[in-house]
Design a binder for these strands. Structure first.
Length: 421
DNA sequence: TCGCTAATAT
DNA sequence: AATATTAGCG
């Protein structure tokens, strides 16, 4: 299915240089024939060591590698591992056993895709996608930090200049205050320093805090300990640090606090209304629905908290009157601090209001896979639908010039206000 | 420098 | 939808 232009000259996938590695000669031949039909330039290999020699000999000799799992001498997995670690080539792994795909280790998993043998023409005809992906990722990796950096610093100096100019001209207060500048500075520093750690390496961004129920309870505990008037972000932060929550920033707390307070406000308004109602209608127990963990948290609870992601959504700590137990390794000696009567039982209610319909982890995974990240992580898609026609379209859209925007917007992003969520 | 709130971005 | 960041004020 190579694309042919007006003059009958084969385009893009044609000429793609592919190295196929398979212990079975017949497989090699079959594959070769298929690939040649698609105008690929095929090189065959029966042994991992030959493949490695070829690959190491000239890093630009191939665009993509297709590799069987069962090879003589060196295991296919091992070979792929080496390829992935040594060179930046897209790899498609093939195996006659579909279950084998789950054997792939993390590193490999993220870097290669899977095809079940016997390979069919329709699958093979799509492997150029991997090359596109890889190139796109390279391009983005190369491009993004750079432009961001320039933009930010440019903005920074622009702001600074306009600031100075304005100040000099009018003697009035600059339009941009120090804090804004600081924020920009911080960001540009973030971008220019590449000493990122762990999670930041993967997507280039710091992971966002996930307010699991457990984390939230610690937060509430801290707030309650501090009491009214003292429950400001900085102090809450200190408290939580004392409770062994070390990764939060003041901004995290401030943000959560803001939401928390809005919630309390809403709840107190609600309970006031209830009270009035009850006063009129004699005695009616006030129904307080249990706290529901935000859906997102249910699935991602592992990100930054100790809560396993299989948390039981049915029972929650708000069903009891105890706030939370101190962590066993906590330095706090006064256990009663954790066992305060809770003045804000209202927080047992939804925060924010939710219909309580928790979605399963699996569903969540799928919905995540439907987001933009899917496009940058081939494997997410590879698991079940990579070789479906829809993907062909997407890739075509990305490679070609037709509405690459459409691909993004169709995933339910409302960033541009174009879709309802 | 910090904190608050509302608005907006991701 | 949840969280992060910003603006603008005190």
């Amino acid at each position: 299915m190579s694309i042919v232009d007006d003059n009958g000259v084969a385009e893009f996938p044609a000429g793609l240089k592919i190295l196929i590695v398979d212990g079975d000669k017949t497989c090699l031949l079959v594959l070769e024939r298929m690939l040649r039909k698609l105008s690929y330039r095929v090189t065959k290999c029966q042994h991992a060591r030959d493949a490695l020699a070829l690959l190491r000999g000239d890093k630009n000799r191939f665009d993509i590698v297709m590799c069987d799992l069962h090879l003589p001498e060196i295991d296919g997995l091992k070979l792929i591992e080496i390829i992935v670690s040594e060179m930046d080539l897209p790899v498609v792994m093939t195996s006659s056993d579909e279950r084998q795909r789950f054997v792939m280790k993390g590193v490999i998993k993220g870097a290669c895709d899977y095809l079940v043998k016997p390979v069919r023409m329709e699958s093979v005809s799509l492997i150029w996608q991997h090359v596109v992906r890889k190139r796109r990722r390279l391009f983005e990796a190369f491009q993004q930090p750079r432009t961001d950096n320039i933009n930010v610093t440019d903005r920074l100096s622009l702001l600074q200049m306009s600031n100075d100019a304005a100040a000099a001209a009018s003697g009035t207060v600059p339009a941009i205050d120090k804090r804004s500048l600081q924020c920009l500075k911080r960001r540009s520093e973030d971008i220019s320093n590449d000493g990122e750690s762990s999670d930041e390496v993967t997507n280039g961004k710091k992971p966002r805090v996930v307010w699991t129920q457990e984390l939230h309870e610690l937060f509430v505990t801290a707030v309650n300990q501090l009491g009214h008037g003292n429950d400001v972000p900085k102090k809450i932060l200190e408290r939580m640090k004392a409770m062994d929550v070390t990764y939060l920033t003041r901004a995290n707390i401030a943000s959560h606090l803001q939401k928390y307070r809005m919630h309390l406000q809403k709840e107190s308004a609600r309970s006031a209304a209830n009270r009035d109602l009850n006063a009129c209608q004699q005695f009616q127990p006030t129904h307080t629905p249990p706290y529901q963990l935000p859906q997102q948290n249910l699935a991602n609870g592992h990100v930054l908290s100790t809560v396993p992601n299989h948390v039981d959504t049915g029972s929650n700590i708000f069903d009891s009157n105890i706030v939370s137990e101190p962590p066993s390794h906590c330095l706090q000696t006064d256990a009663s601090l954790y066992d305060l009567p809770r003045p804000n039982l209202l927080y047992q209610n939804d925060f924010p209001p939710s219909d309580g319909a928790a979605i399963s982890n699996e569903e969540n995974l799928h919905s995540n896979a439907g987001s933009v990240t899917e496009l940058s992580n081939p494997f997410l898609a590879a698991d079940e639908m990579f070789y479906e026609p829809s993907f062909l379209q997407e890739e075509a859209a990305l490679v070609g010039l037709q509405s690459s925007m459409g691909g993004y917007l169709s995933f339910g992003s409302n960033c541009f206000g174009l879709t309802q969520s």
